[in-house]
Write a protein that binds this DNA or RNA. Structure first.
Lengths: 344, 344
DNA sequence: ATGAAAGCGCTAACAC
DNA sequence: GTGTTAGCGCTTTCAT
């Protein structure tokens, strides 16, 4: 039916070029000197049979597959997708392939997939944790498989990490609004039980209050799990109540851009002008910020750079390069667009 | 320094449990009956030494790695991320792992990465093509590696595919606007040289015109490469000119949601009300549609289902199941939100 | 400069 | 029901 031929192996090349397989191996890997004449013959045979070495077999010998594992909660979230893009480019530039696993914020999946990847003898692992449970990561690290954690820092451990200073970034955002003249600054977030990244941003908000001697006002802090990406309505309801009760700040910081945009929708719906009546600020600088009306002022995370930095750090470790700093903190930046202004 | 021990192999388990390695293999793979007693001993040893089989070695023997390759242009685009999510879930449910490659619309990368994956002896390959060049895919298919193509159909080939009917979907969208009362319906798109998916949508627009006996009016068709995701300004400029020249339709279909949202921004900027003065319709039903102001009426593609369908199709083929339909066309649906209305 | 051969960890055919 | 063994495709040590 199909004239498809078995993939040629190193043996076939040896036979074709009249040498022995180890010689073929040496010309492929340039691991020993081979005379030009034989080398040419081998190369010709390789081309002729369209031979490419079997990475699996090589991996079995060398214990390296030039493959990196990436575990993250949900590829459909733009933040992860962007970071992954940075990882992908960096890995590719150094000739590594990526294996991807999504955990959907399931801690058991995290561990299960990690083990599955280790079974594949990946050369290293990059981790976005869904929650603050790190035992499995520490286990991997202890059994000598190189790990880099993203977007989180594992205190009191030797585990390398790449992240931003979420607290400082949010405090800067607070200060930006304060310096604009705002004194009633609110905060909108998910709950942060067991999720350090979220908690750190909240701490940044609180630090901003403290620094400027403003008292914490629960009326203008919305902490609710209902405001999921697909639950714009919940955000409406939460904000509607505050508007009706006139418990509204002159400006709101948000855990993330899409929360901010949900809030903007709600404010507009209830007759408040953005930024005229209320300023709104996001976090992450997703593409969506530019498409919002008004465009969203936000805190920019260097997402692609974060990915590339982590990948290169991991590869440096794998390749035994000397790395001076294993806990890299990247800079953030406030991107001013149209959703913030001086208060009335 | 580190007390880390070599990973146990099947030999270690054999020794520990006092049997021979093939027996261990049989209890692991349940490939032959083993007496309860020995099986228990083996299982105990496995647990004790925390043994997990080396997938690489197994792959070398069995020619199967339970790994699927996915090649797509850019993971940071929500459409691909969503489809990938469907792939991931389906693959995981059937105990397969994913390898990911991004090509960034580089046709050489497509082929390079495909080959790299085949070297890894993946069990099958899923492909989003950046352009209409399929030779490398056909080559893979001919050398018997199972392939499924997404979002595109390879006419006159045996290659399985999963996609929507882009032409019909866009024509339906046209009809929706027509039935609303619109007679001047415009179209905004990227150029579609060598990109079938885009061209099919354009054809759907034209078919809608033809079906309703409306003449093609170049004044209200915008075909331009400048309107990239990060180029909101280009969209402004393109639309501004039309507004100034009063060459504006009462409704616009768009190749994709973000183009539609860019258009909405521009229209609003130039004093036109959406949907009062002009209706706007997107394509894809990204999350962003809900966050737009007004929320965007659009054509929904079943993205996760597309991914899952493709993954299951591929796995059925790999596992030798009988599949009746290798070219699956999924249904689309018009999602009505606030950006469309009857014309004034 | 090239060849022979062991062995990575596993599966599967075959023998007992 | 369990054991023996060949071999997947490759790298690498050692001989020549």
């Amino acid at each position: 039916m199909n004239k498809s031929v078995k993939k040629p192996s190193i043996k076939d090349i040896a036979k074709e070029s009249g040498v022995v397989i180890s010689t073929v191996s040496h010309v492929i890997n340039q691991t020993k000197f081979v005379s030009d004449k034989t080398a040419d013959a081998v190369k010709k045979a390789i081309k002729k049979l369209n031979y490419r070495p079997n990475i699996i077999a090589r991996g079995l010998r060398t214990k390296s597959t030039r493959t990196l594992g990436v575990i993250l909660p949900d590829i459909a979230q733009p933040f992860f997708a962007q970071v992954l893009r940075g990882i992908e480019e960096a890995a590719r530039a150094r000739n590594y392939t990526l294996i991807l696993g999504c955990t959907f914020y399931d801690i058991y999946e995290e561990e299960r997939q990690m083990n599955a990847m280790i079974d594949q003898t990946i050369d290293g692992l990059m981790f976005f944790c869904g929650y603050d449970s790190y035992d499995h990561i520490k286990k991997a690290h202890l059994s000598n498989i190189p790990v880099v954690v993203l977007d989180r820092e594992l205190k009191n451990s030797e585990i390398p990490s790449v992240l931003i200073d979420n607290k400082a970034a949010m405090q800067n955002a607070f200060q930006y609004l304060y310096d604009l003249g705002h004194r009633k600054i609110g905060f909108i977030t998910f709950p942060f039980k067991n999720q350090t990244t979220i908690r750190r941003r909240y701490e940044g908000y609180c630090a901003g209050l403290a620094k400027n001697n403003i008292e914490y006002d629960p009326d203008i802090v919305i902490i609710d799990d209902l405001m999921r990406l697909d639950e714009l309505k919940a955000t409406y309801k939460l904000i509607k109540r505050r508007v009706e009760e006139k418990k509204i700040a002159t400006a709101y910081l948000n855990l993330a851009d899409f929360l901010a945009i949900g809030a903007i929708h709600a404010f507009k719906e209830f007759g408040l002008k953005v930024p005229g009546d209320v300023s709104v600020m996001g976090f992450n600088n997703e593409i969506i910020c530019e498409f919002s009306d008004p465009p969203l002022t936000t805190v920019k995370q260097p997402k692609k750079i974060m990915g590339a930095t982590a990948a290169n750090l991991l590869l440096d470790i794998i390749e035994g390069k000397k790395v001076e700093n294993k806990n890299i903190v990247l800079e953030t930046e406030i991107i001013v667009r149209g959703s913030t202004a001086v208060p009335k």
